[in-house]
Design a protein around this nucleic acid. Structure first.
Length: 538
DNA sequence: ATAGGGTTAG
C-alpha cells in the first residue's frame, strides 16, 4: 500500500475509479482508519463518490467506530441519490446495527424502495445481534424471498440465543441446505453441550469440511471430553479428505495440555512447523500453554522466544506458566518486558503476577502489584484476585491477616478461598481457623467430601485420631465418597488413567512389578515415603 | 470494481 499511495499521490486529478482502488486496497489490508482519513481528503477536494465508494467506506467506518464520519457518508449517499442502492443500504444497515443503533438501521431499511434478499438478511442479522429474535422472526416470515443464507442466519440466531430446539425446527424446514447450514446446526449442538446430537448430525452430513471437523472437535473440548478430541483428530488425519488448520491444532493442543499428552503435543508442534502454521499467533500461544502444563517449561519459553508476533494472551500465558512452575522472578521480569513492549496487562496478567509473588513469599510486593492493578490499570479486582491475595497471606503464614482480608473484601468469599485458607491451616497447624474454614466450606459445598478429607488430614497430622474417626463417621453418614485424584500417563499413543491401587488396566501385573522396583530404587537412594500418603494406600 | 453466513489460544 505504501507504493500504491506514493503513485496515487503523484496523479494530478485521479478519477473516482482510482480513489475507489485506493479505498479497496486499504480495506483489504485491514487499514480501515486510512480509508476514513482518505475519504475526508476526497471530500475536501470536492470529488463526488459513486456507488462503488460507499460500501467500502461505510464498512471501514463501522470497523473503526467512526460513527460521526459514518453519518456524514450516509448524507453523501442520500445526496448522491443512492438511497435505494442495495449495496449501499446493506452496509448502512450493518454499520448502524453494529453500533446498536437498530432504529437507524430500520429507518434505512424502510426507506429503501427495492430490497433484495441480501438487504433483508442484513436487517434480520441486525435484530439478532440486538438479541431481538421476535423482530428477526417477524421480518423472516415477511421476507418475499428466502435463500439458504437467510435461512442459515435465522438458524444461527436461535443458536446464539441458546434456543437449539427452535434452531433445529427451522433447520428441518429448510428447503435446501448447504455445508454452512449443516455446520451452523452442528456448532449449535456442540456449544450447547449436546454432544450426542452433535455426533449424530456429523455422521448425517452429506459433506464435511474443516469447519465441520473443528465444530465436533471443539464441542468435545468445550465439554471436557479431551480423549474424544484426540480420537477425532486422529480419525480426521486417517480419513485424510480434510487437512487440519490452525483452529484444529489449537483445540488439540489445549486437550494435550489438559491430559498431559506431551507426545501428541510435540507431534502437533512438528506438524505446525511443517504445514504453514509456523508463525501463527494462536498456535504459538497454545503451544506455550501445552508445554507448560505438560511440565516442560523450557520448551514453553523457547516457543515464546521464537514468536515474532506476540499479543496479550502470549504474555499472559508465559507469565502464568512461569509462575505455575515456581519461576516467580522470571515471571516478574517478563511482566516488565511486556510493559516495555507496549502491551497493557489485564486481569489475567495479574493472576500470574500475584501467583508469582505467592510462590516467592513476596507479601509486600504482592500487595503493591494488587494496588497498581487498581490504581494504574483501572482493573476491578475479581474474586480470583482476592483469592490470590488470601493465598498470598495464608501461605506466608499470616493466617490472621488472611482471615481479616476475607472479612474486609467487597465480595463474598467462595469455596476456593476457604479451601486455600484451610490448606494453609494444615501447613501452619492452626486448628481453630481450620474448623472455621470447614464450617464455611460445608455451607458452600455440602456435597464436596474433599473438604472433610482436608480437615481429617489436619487432625491426623496432630495425632487427633479420635477426631479423624468422628469425621469418617460424619462422612459416611453423608453417603458421599471423595473421588480419588488420578494420574494421566501417555502410553503408546494414548492416555491412560490411573488411580491409587488401580486394578483396571489389563497389564496391571507388569505395572505393579515395575512400580515395586521403582519404590525399591527410591528407598535405596534415600527417599522416605510420606506416611500420610502410605495411609492412603500409595 | 461494491453487499448478507463459520471454527481456535491465557
Amino acid at each position: 500500500m505504501g507504493y500504491a499511495r506514493k503513485l496515487f499521490d503523484r496523479i494530478p486529478d485521479p478519477s473516482i475509479a482510482l480513489w475507489n482502488a485506493m479505498f479497496r486496497g486499504y480495506s483489504e489490508n485491514e487499514s480501515y482508519g486510512e480509508v476514513v482519513v482518505l475519504f475526508g481528503q476526497m471530500k475536501r477536494l470536492n470529488v463526488m463518490p459513486n456507488c462503488f465508494t460507499f460500501p467500502i467506506v461505510l464498512k471501514s467506518c463501522g470497523k473503526v467506530d467512526a460513527y460521526v464520519e459514518g453519518q456524514e457518508v450516509h448524507c453523501f449517499a442520500i445526496k448522491g441519490g443512492f438511497r435505494a442502492n442495495p449495496f449501499v443500504g446493506t452496509t448502512l444497515i450493518d454499520m448502524y446495527a453494529g453500533r446498536g443503533k437498530i432504529g437507524a438501521a430500520y429507518k434505512v431499511f424502510c426507506e429503501m424502495v427495492e430490497r433484495n434478499v441480501v438487504v433483508w438478511t442484513s436487517m434480520i442479522n441486525g435484530y439478532i445481534s440486538c438479541r431481538d429474535m421476535v423482530s428477526a422472526r417477524r421480518l423472516f416470515d415477511l421476507a418475499p424471498e428466502r435463500d439458504v443464507v437467510l435461512w442459515s442466519t435465522m438458524v444461527s440466531g436461535y443458536i446464539e440465543m441458546g434456543d437449539v430446539v427452535a434452531a433445529r425446527k427451522l433447520f428441518d424446514q429448510m428447503p435446501n441446505r448447504d455445508i454452512m447450514s449443516w455446520n451452523a446446526m452442528l456448532n449449535g449442538y456442540a456449544n450447547n453441550g449436546d454432544l450426542k446430537a452433535c455426533e449424530r448430525l456429523f455422521e448425517e452430513m452429506p459433506k464435511k469440511n474443516i469447519f465441520s471437523w473443528n465444530g465436533l472437535i471443539g464441542g468435545y473440548g468445550h465439554n471436557g471430553q479431551f480423549f474424544e478430541v484426540m480420537q477425532t483428530f486422529k480419525r480426521m488425519l486417517i480419513e485424510g479428505n480434510v487437512l487440519p488448520n490452525d483452529a484444529t491444532l489449537v483445540t488439540v493442543l489445549s486437550a494435550c495440555a489438559r491430559l498431559g499428552a506431551i507426545d501428541l503435543g510435540k507431534w502437533v508442534h512438528v506438524y505446525a512447523e511443517s504445514s504453514g502454521y509456523k508463525g501463527n499467533l494462536y498456535v504459538g500461544n497454545a503451544l506455550i500453554d501445552m508445554y507448560a502444563k505438560c511440565g516442560i517449561i523450557e520448551s514453553a519459553v523457547d516457543v515464546f522466544k521464537s514468536m515474532a508476533l506476540k499479543d496479550l494472551i502470549t504474555w499472559n500465558t508465559v507469565i502464568n506458566a512461569l509462575a505455575m512452575h515456581g519461576h516467580g522472578s522470571d515471571a516478574l521480569t517478563l511482566f516488565c518486558e511486556m510493559k516495555n513492549a507496549g502491551e497493557t496487562p489485564d486481569g489475567v496478567t495479574f493472576i500470574g503476577i500475584l501467583c508469582a509473588c505467592t510462590h516467592m513469599g513476596l507479601v509486600k510486593d504482592g500487595f503493591s502489584y494488587f494496588q497498581s492493578m487498581v490504581d494504574v490499570y483501572s482493573i476491578v479486582p475479581q474474586i480470583e484476585h482476592y483469592g490470590c491475595m488470601v493465598d498470598l497471606l495464608a501461605r506466608a503464614g499470616h493466617l490472621k491477616q488472611a482471615l481479616e482480608f476475607v472479612r474486609k473484601m467487597p465480595v463474598e468469599a467462595d469455596a476456593v478461598i476457604w479451601a486455600a485458607l484451610l490448606g494453609a491451616c494444615r501447613i501452619y497447624k492452626n486448628i481453630s481457623l481450620a474448623e472455621l474454614a470447614l464450617e464455611r466450606l460445608i455451607e458452600l459445598e455440602p456435597k464436596n467430601p474433599a473438604n472433610f478429607v482436608m480437615l481429617s488430614n489436619i487432625y491426623g497430622d496432630l495425632g487427633r485420631w479420635k477426631d479423624v474417626a468422628r469425621l469418617k463417621v460424619a462422612m459416611r453418614d453423608t453417603g458421599l465418597r471423595k473421588l480419588p485424584g488420578c494420574s494421566l500417563v501417555e502410553v503408546n499413543d494414548s492416555v491412560v488413567e490411573f488411580y491409587s491401587l488401580d486394578e483396571r488396566h489389563p497389564e496391571k501385573e507388569e505395572i505393579y512389578v515395575v512400580l515395586k522396583g521403582l519404590t525399591k530404587l527410591l528407598r535405596s537412594s534415600g527417599y522416605v515415603l510420606d506416611p500420610m500418603e502410605l495411609e492412603q494406600g500409595t
